[in-house]
Write a protein that binds this DNA or RNA. Structure first.
Lengths: 314, 314
DNA sequence: TCGCCACCTAACCGAAGCCTTATCGCGACA
DNA sequence: TGTCGCGATAAGGCTTCGGTTAGGTGGCGA
């Protein structure tokens, strides 16, 4: 019984799927399946089984599994706590692990974190990308300290800023009879995640999967849209320069632009790290606002080469 | 950072010595030292250092070490709890791990445990031997559920029975001018442990180490005494047969025979296992009393061949 | 100053952990 | 009835763990 195995088990039970856990950990699916098998053998109990014994119906804990998952979760948390305790005792830099969606990781979040590290000394920030479902599980398991994105139910969430998502395209593009759903859509890797901003947009417009092209990052999607032949979702104030230069134009419909809220999510006050607390406080300052609205402050796109959607901390 | 490493660290810090921890775990001393080194490297902190940087002065936790022990201890406890939870959920036999002193392990305790397992169904008992100092640490770390022996401070102790420790020798042996300290003493492996019954007896009589011979078990010590040339401590009612047969005779002095109390020690009620609770209750019954006073009920001596003083549960 | 005691380090070795790719099993669903 | 999705299993390789024995180091006491 190793800590890694316990971490895997907890993550599988929280995400309800081996595949999802593998993705969240950034490893292959057999790796997860095998860790689970080892734990099952060691404890001599299936712990978690396929529910409908078919696909799609999720998984289900055995009685023993239910008891173990709570204990295992505590152990994983304590392991993180131990490392943090040492780091803090020795005055080393605190570690703040932030997760966000792929879309936000390319636009708003990097400049926010850059401003934060400059302001609050002695904190080392690392940024990871995850789907919305994963974000909650990652926070619960203390694999991340803060999640920036939509409001996560069951966690301590706080609205930070309002941002507008628009659709952009080549200025000459005309929408024909089929409506927006008839066009080609160029999206970043959050597109396939139905809970993400972009995924929700695709769902609302009932865009068939065959019309969607996934790009490594948002900028690549705009470029494709600027070249003509399709539309791309974008965060409004990040494309203002391109719109001003006439390279792109905003499209309008009943659904776009749409105003969204960026939240800071973390565990409740007693359970979250000091660094997480500091970031929460920082997001309320004018400095933070200014950083988030600065359009050109993105990190170099190269940092987000595929596979973007998988990041992990050991 | 593995659970085994954490267990080692906690045990070292509780016993205050690498050697003692190695003995308690039944492994060589470098094994412990190395596990500690791995943890130190991983956490980048010495965690625990020699106090006076000399021999005998014990060890001392660093600030980070102090914080880590408490966390590590919880983790180790939770690991045990997880396994117990599964076992219980599945109706498998509960596991009761008992530690006792070497002296008692050869005499009173086996017949007690034998009676207990016969009475309380579905409990699997395993017996280990440890020094008095180790017993407390083993209970704290949940490496054992119950300790049978002297009262352990800081734990939930309950007196179970009174037993008498006598000195036996060949019937013809006469004590000369030097008193008892001038004789050869034949003792079992608890002799070198100054906190044990036998060790305390040696200390009170100021027996020099050169006069002490350590035998693999108590019966071997009696045999040597019966052959003449020395004395051996023994639990009174276990040698009554030999005394009746004239093979051995009891010696008397201001200090011997001495009456001692056997205690059941375990963690406090909320923290101890159900099986531990059952054993505690059983010790209050007449059946338990009868079993403990039955002189011939020892387990075969072969089970206690050296190394006796080492015990091991993984 | 010699030797002992307690801890650390080195070197080696087998077992287990943990990752990969490839393949199988099995419901669900068109 | 194929085939798709998803989990389990097989096989293979690298790394780490955890154990051993042997030898090094540095106070402390006689």
């Amino acid at each position: 019984m190793t800590l890694a195995q316990l971490k895997v088990f907890v993550l599988v039970s929280r995400l309800g799927s081996v595949r999802a856990a593998a993705a969240a950990l950034g490893v292959s699916e057999p790796a997860v399946s095998q860790a689970l098998a080892a734990l099952r053998q060691h404890l001599d109990d299936p712990l978690i089984t396929r529910a409908g014994s078919g696909s799609g119906s999720g998984m289900e804990l055995t009685p023993a599994g239910r008891r173990v998952v709570t204990i295992a979760s505590q152990m994983v948390n304590l392991a993180v706590e131990a490392e943090a305790a040492v780091r803090q005792s020795n005055g080393a830099a605190e570690l703040l692990r932030v997760v966000t969606t792929s879309t936000l990781a390319q636009s708003i979040v990097p400049s926010l974190l850059q401003a934060f590290t400059a302001r609050a000394g002695g904190i080392e920030v690392s940024l990871g990308v995850a789907t919305t479902t994963e974000m909650a599980a990652l926070l619960e398991e203390r694999l991340a300290d803060v999640a920036l994105g939509p409001r996560l139910p069951g966690l301590d969430a706080e609205a930070v800023m309002r941002y507008r998502m628009t659709l952009v395209a080549h200025p000459d593009l005309r929408v024909n009879g089929g409506g927006l759903a008839g066009l080609r859509w160029f999206v970043d890797p959050t597109g396939p995640d139905p809970l993400s901003d972009v995924g929700a947009l695709l769902a609302r417009h009932r865009v068939p999967a065959s019309h969607v092209s996934v790009f490594a990052n948002e900028k690549a999607a705009w470029s494709a849209a600027a070249a003509g032949g399709g539309v791309a979702p974008a965060i409004d104030h990040m494309v203002s320069a391109e719109v001003d230069r006439g390279v792109l134009a905003r499209l309008h419909s009943s659904d776009v632009p749409v105003d969204l809220l960026l939240h800071v999510n973390s565990l409740g006050a007693p359970r979250r790290s000091r660094a997480a607390d500091k970031l929460r406080r920082f997001t309320r300052t004018p400095d933070a606002m200014q950083a988030m609205y600065r359009p050109d402050a993105g990190v170099p796109v190269s940092k987000f080469r595929p596979p973007v959607y998988v990041t992990l901390w050991s």
